[in-house]
Design a protein around this nucleic acid. Structure first.
Lengths: 148, 148
DNA sequence: TATTGTTATACTCTATAACTATA
DNA sequence: TATAGTTATAGAGTATAACAATA
């Protein structure tokens, strides 16, 4: 790997374009994660929504959407699906009756836990070509560029 | 950065999901690249297509689609747009008249060169939070996981 | 019969605009 | 008047199916 990193390919080479690398990395991870989550009837996006809803706690449905970076109208559909599967429940906010608080059911929490483990395994598979340290570095570097 | 990388956040934390990181990295890069390429009337995908067509040389339109990982019917539309802008020309393959060879015009080559530089600058901006070495490592690690 | 390019069509994902109920 | 949730609708991006020309 380190020798390959020193070669510095031409900018007009597809495999040297960051956009290409990110897109195809996402495609590959999506394949692996999709297969891993298939037994739960979820995909990677669904799991992300479930994670945020679990984190959001007493907050509103719209606040959860903001965290995910998706539109509130899109969130409605996601919550509909999750609710239809008995993973979450909508409850009216105590102090503001316009708001929905979305809470995980027992089934939802159990599914979240098991699906997260399956997704973790898919990530490990995805990162297998790298050392454990390099894999962690990849994630922390991605987080750094996102937050800038 | 290095201290943050040692904290190992919980799997059920959104910012620790690789899918989330890749998606949002792509969104951010897309913003920067979109702005950088806007003067050329191109976006990141258009540039990728142009790069592949430039690389493809005497090969067919369909071979270029395969390299990009997109459908041949999608490639038709891309080539239509590029041809409409005078960046490429379709020519019938000498040995197999079913095939199109897509070649860049002089304008196309010039645009490719300048747009690539602009996209490179956007990448640098995207990678600014990292050291130059870490940025190169990020790209080579992404390439490694894609190729596995 | 198989393949390339093309067209028409449909599907997925997401956002915008408008509605309602609450504030 | 403003905000949360919802609904209907539209748009971008992509793929699948069917067709003509060629192999």
């Amino acid at each position: 790997m380190s020798s390959a990193a020193n070669v510095a390919p031409a900018p007009t080479e597809l495999t040297n374009r960051l956009g290409y690398l990110l897109k195809h990395a996402q495609m590959r991870l999506s394949e692996l994660t999709g297969a891993a989550l298939e037994p739960f009837g979820l995909n990677g996006r669904d799991l992300a929504v479930l994670i945020v809803l679990a984190e959001a706690g007493a907050e509103s449905q719209q606040e959860a959407a903001r965290r995910l970076g998706i539109d509130r109208t899109t969130m409605v559909a996601f919550v509909d699906v999750m609710e239809g599967r008995g993973l979450v429940e909508r409850r009216t906010h105590a102090g503001d009756r316009r708001k929905n608080v979305v809470v995980l059911t027992d089934t939802g929490r159990d599914t979240l836990e098991r699906a997260t483990k399956a997704a973790e395994a898919a990530e490990q598979q995805f990162l297998a070509p790298l050392t454990k340290r390099a894999g962690q570095q990849l994630k922390s570097d991605l987080l750094a560029v996102i937050r800038s």
